[in-house]
Design a protein around this nucleic acid. Structure first.
Length: 710
RNA sequence: GGGCGCGUAGCUCAGCCGGUUAGAGCGCUACAUUGACAUUGUAGAGGUCAGAGGUUCGAGUCCUCUCGCGCCCACCA
């Protein structure tokens, strides 16, 4: 940059012996950010650009404001950064739009926990004060994760950072809801929903977690009216029998065929209930006869509707028995009620047998409490029309999953789609914009609008929306394919009349070395910030991508990050050698066999890397660069060039290094930029590698003639 | 009950459309080295490519089955 001092060997003193990422990364990031290199208005300033006028847009999957960067984020951010940096260099007007999600339940829980330490509950504060506290919390901690992304080198346009509760974003949410409402697709209904008694809200099926639990299967005899016979039902939740409205059997079941239509005396409650037929009943399970509790089970609710059964809500929103459960039980917890029921049944000799039975229990994904399914009034969005279009989009290939196999997960969900329960009973979120309704919307309702609401929708005149929509790529984790990706797709077709993005990259899941899930609570997680601290951001990015092969899950090994650090050092020393060697060169104009070979090899690997990048095979691409740089360029050619110090080898060394830096830059942006900054350049237009513009194929560098020759 | 992925060196993984002595990183062994780099170089040890059968002139590579591991979906009460 400035007049560098040279030592006696002609080597830049700037290039210290070992590479120290700490000394360069923050400094370089500041240069990029201050220079506005990540802003599309600035990053496409060249005139002779073959991709002029073309945009490339990626919106980041907005991390929850509660979160801090985990390995999955780090991998995903690196993937996106590689993509946008490459496209930027290729001359696309490139926008990577960052932001955060208000994450209704998650954030509310975090703030509630904090209040608890002060001995307060949210009810002590009241709704308004509580929401104020959440905003305060968001102000203080909500952007931590964005700062961490910067440390990783993410080249987002921070001037366009969005939050799903921003004022303009709230307008978009409101507009979207009212649009559906006017269309008649929003309705209120009584449904059995997954109810979390702790969070006091309904949850969608996708917001549940399942846990295998050792339980029991109780076989209970229900007396048949005007007979001495019984019909035995099997249940894991005997306490719900107080709310039974029927016994259901499969119409094909020979054992029970004759009983269909008969009446049963429900024990304890002493109610008369019918035996009904339903094809959904599995004959093989339990006794093949199922007690039907419409208020507390989804399937039972449906059977109830088909058969016009009364609904007895016997458990309330706090998980306590209601008046309808009978005076003996009112006020008891469901668990206590169960114990009491069992004793009672034993007294009545109606308990036929008890089996051990392991089954999956659904739990709240945020607080882990057992879900209490119960009937409640909720708002729903009709899904049939929306799902149809979204399905077609993927079928027709307008939108594609990469790797393709993930589309199965999507289709499977779309084929079995149910109306979306969009109301939640928490306080932190977008209010449902209807008179007298104080529920809020499911967080994912707002996330579903992310690709266009961040660009200015519903303002028709938004220039960003016109210029940067639709986006090209979304990159995300598999577990939100349906929760988020599917919903963005149908939202976009509904509101924008077009696809939200073309390619959906589903990145690998990062597991521990022995294939276990990384989780904070299990203590198996690794904090990427520690890796950056220890090895540098470039090395961390390298290590993550280096392990990303074949679209499979990554059994994370820190060795790969270490290899990244070593590789950075290797590159650093290659640069020291290339920039240092300048005196006592023999004149030579002809290329030797070795010269020809290395030039060809480099051009070959650049083509191969470009091809892999187009197919999002980032791991393969990085392996190719690594192998070439270390083994072909350093081990072979540099050793050759040491023995043949000529004008020619010097020239080839310089040209090759510049090409290497260019192709490696999206992967390891800091060190490549740093080395670039100290290489002699004729024209200061090419001061920063991040602003370099290339032809689509990197092997044909736009400005080869101008800058390759020194 | 459906669906998906994986089983190749001690560990983490490459090996594309099937083709000569199966590769890398880390680890291990021996040697080298004050002029790019010990965060290095050279050489080396280490694999019946989960198992069985099949297709083929020829199979980690394609087909079938078996075993083992992991994940996802579904209203088995």
């Amino acid at each position: 940059m400035k007049n560098e001092s040279k030592n006696s060997k002609g080597m830049d003193e700037k290039l210290l012996k070992p590479y120290e990422p700490k000394e360069t990364e923050d400094k370089i990031y500041e240069i990029w950010e201050k220079g506005g290199f990540f802003r599309p208005e600035i990053n496409q300033s060249r005139t002779n650009n073959p991709n002029k006028g073309k945009t490339f847009t990626v919106v980041i999957p907005p991390p929850n404001v509660t979160g801090s960067l985990h390995m999955g984020h780090a991998l995903n951010a690196t993937i996106q950064d590689i993509l946008v940096r490459q496209k930027r260099m290729q001359g696309y007007k490139t926008l990577w739009l960052p932001g955060t999600d208000h994450a209704g339940i998650a954030t509310q829980n975090v703030v509630e926990k904090k209040l608890k330490k002060e001995g307060l509950s949210r009810h002590d504060l009241g709704k308004e004060k509580f929401i104020e506290r959440v905003w305060e919390w968001k102000k203080e901690y909500g952007n931590i994760i964005l700062g961490q992304l910067k440390k990783l080198g993410a080249s987002c346009d921070w001037s366009r950072t969005k939050f799903t509760m921003d004022e303009d974003y709230a307008k978009a949410v409101k507009a979207a809801f009212l649009h559906y409402y006017k269309k008649g697709w929003i309705y209120q209904g009584d449904r059995v929903v997954n109810w979390c008694v702790r969070c006091q809200t309904s949850l969608s099926d996708l917001e549940l977690e399942y846990e295998e639990e050792k339980g029991k299967l109780w076989h209970i005899k229900y007396p048949i009216k005007d007979s001495k016979k019984f019909i035995t039902v099997a249940t894991t939740r005997p306490e719900t029998m107080l709310g039974d409205s029927a016994v259901a059997v499969n119409p094909k079941d020979e054992r029970y065929k004759k009983l269909i239509g008969k009446t049963v005396i429900l024990p304890i409650a002493n109610r008369e209930i019918p035996i009904v037929a339903d094809r959904a009943i599995e004959m093989e399970f339990g006794t093949g006869a199922v007690k039907t509790t419409p208020a507390h089970d989804m399937l039972d609710f449906e059977i109830g509707q088909k058969n016009n059964l009364p609904v007895h809500k016997i458990i309330n929103q706090f998980g306590k028995m209601t008046t309808e459960a009978g005076s003996e039980y009112e006020g008891l917890s469901a668990k206590d009620a169960r114990g009491k029921i069992i004793i009672e049944l034993e007294k009545l000799s109606l308990l036929e047998k008890t089996e051990n039975y392991d089954h999956r229990v659904s739990k709240c994904y945020r607080c882990g409490k057992v879900i209490e399914p119960q009937i409640s009034k909720q708002w729903f969005l009709k899904m049939d029309e929306l799902a149809k279009k979204a399905k077609e989009a993927v079928k027709k290939g307008e939108v594609s999953f990469c790797p393709k196999r993930w589309e199965k997960v999507y289709f499977n969900w779309m084929d079995n789609i149910k109306d979306w329960c969009v109301s939640r009973q928490i306080w932190w979120g977008h209010k449902i914009p209807l008179e007298g309704v104080d529920d809020v919307l499911d967080t994912w309702f707002s996330s579903a609008l992310w690709p266009f609401a961040t660009l200015g929708w519903p303002e028709e005149e938004s220039s960003d929306l016109k210029e940067f929509y639709p986006t090209q790529v979304i990159s995300t984790a598999r577990d939100i394919i349906n929760l988020w990706v599917a919903r963005m797709i149908f939202s976009s077709y509904e509101f924008m009349k077009q696809k939200p993005f073309t390619d959906i990259i589903i990145h690998p899941t990062i597991l521990t070395k022995d294939g276990k899930r990384m989780s904070k609570s299990l203590g198996t997680g690794i904090d990427p910030m520690n890796l950056i601290e220890k090895y540098g951001a470039d090395a961390t990015r390298f290590g993550l991508i280096y392990q990303m092969m074949g679209g499979q899950d990554i059994h994370f090994s820190e060795d790969a990050i270490m290899a990244g650090k070593k590789f950075a050092n290797k590159l650093w020393n290659i640069a020291r050698f290339v920039s240092g060697q300048s005196e006592g060169l023999k004149p030579e104009t002809k290329k030797s066999k070795q010269d020809e070979e290395i030039i060809k090899k480099l051009d070959d690997i650049i083509n191969s890397v470009n091809k892999d990048m187009e197919e999002y095979k980032f791991g393969q691409a990085l392996h190719t660069i690594y192998d070439f740089v270390w083994h072909d360029f350093a081990d072979e050619y540099i050793e050759y060039a040491k023995k043949n110090q000529t004008d020619k080898t010097k020239e080839i060394l310089c040209e090759s290094l510049k090409k290497i830096l260019t192709i490696l830059h999206p992967f390891m942006p800091f060190i490549t930029e740093e080395i670039w900054s100290v290489l002699p350049k004729k024209n200061n237009k090419f001061q920063h590698l991040s602003r370099l513009k290339l032809k689509p194929k990197m092997s044909e560098l736009l400005i080869t003639k101008e800058w390759l020759k020194q």
